[in-house]
Structures are given as C-alpha cells and as structure tokens.
Design a protein around this nucleic acid. Sequence first.
DNA 1: TTGACTTAATCAAGCGATTAACTAAGATTG
DNA 2: CAATCTTAGTTAATCGCTTGATTAAGTCAA
Lengths: 229, 229
Amino acid sequence: MTDPDKPSDRGDQTRSALVQAAMAEFSDNGYHAASNRDIAAQAQANQALIGYHFGGKQGLYLAVFQFISEQVQQHTGSVIAQMKARLGSLPEGEPLDAEAREACIQLVLGLVERMAKLFVSPLFKPAAQLILREQQKPTQAFDILYESFMRPSLQVVTALVQRLRPKDSREDAALLVITILGQILIFRAGRSTALRHLAWEDIGPDQLAAILKRVKTSTRLLLSTEDET
Amino acid sequence: MTDPDKPSDRGDQTRSALVQAAMAEFSDNGYHAASNRDIAAQAQANQALIGYHFGGKQGLYLAVFQFISEQVQQHTGSVIAQMKARLGSLPEGEPLDAEAREACIQLVLGLVERMAKLFVSPLFKPAAQLILREQQKPTQAFDILYESFMRPSLQVVTALVQRLRPKDSREDAALLVITILGQILIFRAGRSTALRHLAWEDIGPDQLAAILKRVKTSTRLLLSTEDET
DNA sequence: TTGACTTAATCAAGCGATTAACTAAGATTG
DNA sequence: CAATCTTAGTTAATCGCTTGATTAAGTCAA
C-alpha cells in the first residue's frame, strides 16, 4: 500500500515526464522547432509514446497548456478568491469609505506582486514564453489559458477597480487594468530591452524589489486619481 | 536614366522581395517553421537565391532585422531628434519652469503616441512579432535592433524624464520609462488577452483613441507626481 | 566576352506518424 | 493453485516527405 514514490500507473509518470519535456522544448524555439524525438529523449521515453498517450504532437502541445493553466491557478487562486469575497462583502450601491478603499487597493497590489513574481521567475520562463506566443497567433491552446485563469482574474480585478473609480465605465476600468498589467508584463515580454536599458545582468531579488516598488507606487497612484476631463 | 520604377539592379529587387517575404514567413511561426522554399515562392524567386544573396537562411534572417531597424528609425527618428534638441537647450543645473516642463511632457507623450500607433498597426505586426521573439531568446539580430534604435530612444527619453523628476536616480527614471512603455507594449505582446477582456474585435481608430487617452493620462500623471517615501 | 544573376536538379539529414512485436501486471478461468 | 487471457504500456524499425544547402548549367545586360 504505502509505496515510496507513488506507485501510480507507469503511464501517469510517462505522461508527466513528456509534458514537462515538451514544455521546455516547445518554449525554446516554438512548436515547429521542437521535435518529438528530442522531447522523448529529454523525457527518457520512446518517441512513439507521444502518439500513444497524446494522439500526436498537437495533442501533447495542448496537454502542456492544460498543465500550465493548473500551475498558474495554484499560484494566483487564493488572491482571486480573496478578491471575490471582498467584492461580495462590499456595500452595493454607495461609495467606499477610506478603510474599504485601502483594503481594495491592497488586494490589487497583492495580485500585482504575485504576477510580477511569476513573470520574473526563472521557473515560469518556459510557460511565459508559450503564453506570449499564443497571444500573437492564438490557437486552441489560448482558449484553455483564457477560460481557465485569465478571464476569472481579469473580471474580478476589473470589478474591484470599478468600485475604486466609480466614474469609470466598465471599458475605462478594463483599460486601466490592462495597462497596469502591461507595466509588469514588459519585464517578460521586453525582457532583454529592459535588462540592457537598466544595465541589469539578471532579475534577482534586488531587481524584483525595485520593480515592485515602481509598479506598486504607480498602481496606487493610478487607482487613487480620478481622470481629468 | 530616368527609369519609371527604379532601374536599380535586378539583384536589389530580388533582395528586397526576399527580405519582405522572409519577414512575413519568419514572423508567422518562427525561424524554424519558415522554409526557404516558401519564402522564395512568396518572393517569386528561386530558392537558391537565398544562398546566393544572403549566404543562407541565417543571413536572410539578419537582413530582415536590418530592414526592420531602418523602418522603425524612419518612424520615430524625428521625435527622437526633437527630444535631443530640447534636451540640449534646457538650462543645465536647475529645476525646470512650468513652461519647459510642459514642453518636455508633450515630447514624451508624442513619442508614446507614435509608439502606440506603431505597435498597433497591422503593417507593423510581422516586425513586432519578430522583435518580441528576439526578446525571449536574443540572437545577433537583437543587437542590431538595440543598437540601431532602442538604445538611442531609451537614452534620450530617460534623460528627459530625469529632468522632469530631478529627485529620481538614473535607475528610477529608467524603470519609469520601461513601465510606461509596458502600458503600450501590452497591446501587442498581450494582444489577444487585451482584446478579449475589452470585448474588442480588433484595434481600429476608435480603440486606438481609447488606448491613447488612457496611456497619455497615466503617463502625464506618472511624470508629474513625485513618489512618496 | 565578361561577370552578376538565376535556374533546375540533387544531396544527406531530420521530420511526424505508424506499425508490429514485446513486456508486465491483473483478471478470469479450469 | 496454476494456466490462460486481457489490456495498458513500451519498443525498435520503417514509411513518405520536407528541410537547408550545394552545384553545374544557363541567362542576360554592359
């Protein structure tokens, strides 16, 4: 019964190893450049197992995005849940008092911090590259990403922002959320440019702290200031 | 002498056609997925001409980035020049008066507008995708991009920002510039997510106007507000 | 005629997919 | 109990096809 390293089925271990290897290979140079042979070799498995377990290269590709979605949800799920709870407990019709405003701002800043850490993490690099590529040429894989964690997160954050800036339309709030995200995303999407311009060799703890300070300051400012007309 | 559509050498036309076709093909699914045969076919040229004119696939790839660099410089060069001129004419040691501040802010907003238009333009889409890909795995091509137009632009904007926020260190200013850029970049790098969340089908003139309004408002705010400590 | 340019043909190498044969572990029999 | 069957997982080998590069022959304006 109590087997040491999970007896699970042999198949499960193989599938997992293939997905891990595939994520690395696909992210490295794209779907086409990754070869089933290389993926199998890196997973210490036979090439034909890709066909057996996933139906083929494309099936494996989609399985990678399933895996990524689960990973991200584990990382941000708790903050999103907190936001939903707070949103539900907010007085419905009327403006927020200072205390409630600050609590909401803290929630948004918390999510900003989590996402910044995720984007910058070396462990998340392969996944981030795959997500970025799907943004340029969305396939079926993008739907998996969007429905599983992007839509839920964006919706709840936007709702929160709209409570903080009651004069904003839903589109105004959504635009603000997107641009706040952009301030973080650029450290992944424009990584090399950012590093060179900042004369950083890498993004370590010190650099992450500097990024967070900048982005949190800006975000707080943007959430607190009503636009002039 | 006065030939209608440039007599130029046959070779020039072939090279140009190959570069254009290559940009489209490379951007579509990446370096490896693009085949010399497809590129040649789209350029209505023979496959072996790639070897003859560019030495091989990689040479053609680099030529594409030369071309992109020239394109971008034509698009943003004038604003950068204006900035350099303004920077030179600013009083050296002392804080700026309200008039000078506003002029500097307008210059930054002008660049923001140009870059937003560029990022969003369908014509620039292939180039943008190639630039994004080079950020994730920089090759020799990234050096071409960075040295030709990224470094000059970033340096002058950062210098301008530092005059607007004298308390900021050079790194503070650089960070602010990067995050402002991020607010624009996300509409290219995170295009699909942004479109879905905003319930936009595409980024047309109306959507571009909304983006510009949001980004310009935020940028002005960020440039004008000293950070609290 | 010269030299830049272009062409069709060919090469070895790598690709994704498929197949038939093999293994191991459970379930079903007599 | 043991012989047999069933099924999931795995393997090596092979298929037709496309890849980037090269080459020798050909074109064409100066």
